[in-house]
Simulated assay, not measured.
Amino acid sequence: MLILECPYCGVKADETELHPGGEAHLTRFGPGSSDDAFESYLFMRANPKGVHFERWRHAHGCGKWFHAARCTVTLEVFGTYSAQTTEPPSDIIEKIAARRPGWAKESQA
């Protein structure tokens, strides 16, 4: 079972208390963008086997959105952080790199 800690209220919640929101750190496109850019935003998502950055909502708690870094294979959670953060915090990147030698965030694109 996946357990994430909400960075806002500090509650450790299992996945039944949370709502997934898909890939984190996407560049959003809307009205006025090219058809190709909007199509890419809507349909093209990374779905890596391994480290992934995701959006989650503490649906049955404080209700706030946050980001989580986790491994899709082992369900290992590297950390959670504010949804207002545009890039993963350096301490989480360092934790991932320490546990996954050879991993680089650039390889997730």
Rank of each mutant, 00 (worst) to 15 (best):
C9R: 02
A37M: 10
T16Q: 06
I92G: 01
R100T: 05
P20Q: 07
A13E: 08
D14V: 03
P20C: 04
A69D: 06
P101A: 14
P20W: 10
A69P: 05
S33E: 02
G79E: 01
E15D: 09
G102K: 13
E87Y: 09
I92W: 04
R57D: 10
R99V: 07
T72R: 03
L2Q: 08
R28Q: 14
C62A: 01
G21E: 01
R100D: 01
E39W: 11
D35K: 03
P88A: 04
T72M: 06
E76V: 01
T86E: 12
P7S: 02
P101C: 15
E94S: 09
P89D: 06
E54C: 11
E94C: 07
C9Y: 00
G32Y: 04
C62H: 00
N47T: 14
E39M: 12
G22E: 03
I3M: 05
A37S: 15
A97S: 15
L26T: 11
I3F: 12
Y41H: 13
E17K: 06
G63P: 05
E106Q: 08
C6A: 05
P101L: 14
Q84S: 15
F38K: 10
E54Y: 09
K105A: 04
G30Y: 06
I96H: 00
L26F: 05
D14G: 08
S34M: 07
F38M: 11
G10T: 11
A68K: 01
F29W: 15
L4T: 00
P48A: 11
M44Q: 14
K49P: 02
L75V: 08
Q108V: 06
Y81K: 01
M1V: 08
A83M: 05
V51M: 03
A46F: 07
K64A: 08
A59N: 07
I92S: 02
R70I: 07
K95N: 07
S33F: 02
F29D: 05
V51G: 01
K95L: 08
V51T: 06
I92D: 03
L26Y: 06
W56F: 13
L4N: 00
P31S: 08
R100W: 04
K64M: 09
G61N: 14
E106H: 06
V77I: 15
K95C: 03
K49Y: 12
P101Q: 13
L2G: 02
T86N: 13
F78H: 02
R55F: 13
G50R: 14
E94W: 05
C62K: 00
E76I: 00
E17V: 03
E5V: 02
A109G: 10
W65Y: 08
I3W: 08
H67R: 11
